[in-house]
Amino acid sequence: MNVELLVSHYNYWIVIFLMMVGFYILISRGNLIKKIVGLNVFQTSVFMLYITLGKISGGTPPILTEGEAVYSNPLPHVLILTAIVVGIATTSVGLALAIRIKEAYGTVEEDEINRIEAGIEAGG
């Protein structure tokens, strides 16, 4: 592992960093809203992964002009547009559920919810 490899692939290191940060928040935080934010960061890292895949060194934006033979691959961008929409849908369903959980339990903290649920189960 040399410095050159680290620097020339800096985009992938950003992706991995974001992915791990998002995943860590998702696992470690008990607050449901924070979990959704973690999930969002996690998904965003994948968007970045796809977008950097499409970049070609020295390539222009994929618009047909005279004398430009090398252009970036537009397909990953289009794919990730779909994934962004999916991410928004996931986030909004998650937040909607968090609101309903707040209405039903009076809290969005996971440990308190678990305590209430344990109480329901003990009481039959």
């Binding site: 996690f42 559920l97 649920e117």
Partner: peptide, 25 residues
């Protein structure tokens, strides 16, 4: 408890789906 189980499914299901997109990418 349907709400909390749906939330947990959403978190785990989305992580699973995201893993699949990473693989596809």
């Amino acid at each position: 408890r349907a709400l909390t189980s749906a939330f947990r499914y959403l978190v785990m299901g989305s992580v699973g789906a995201t893993f699949i997109v990473i693989g596809i990418g």
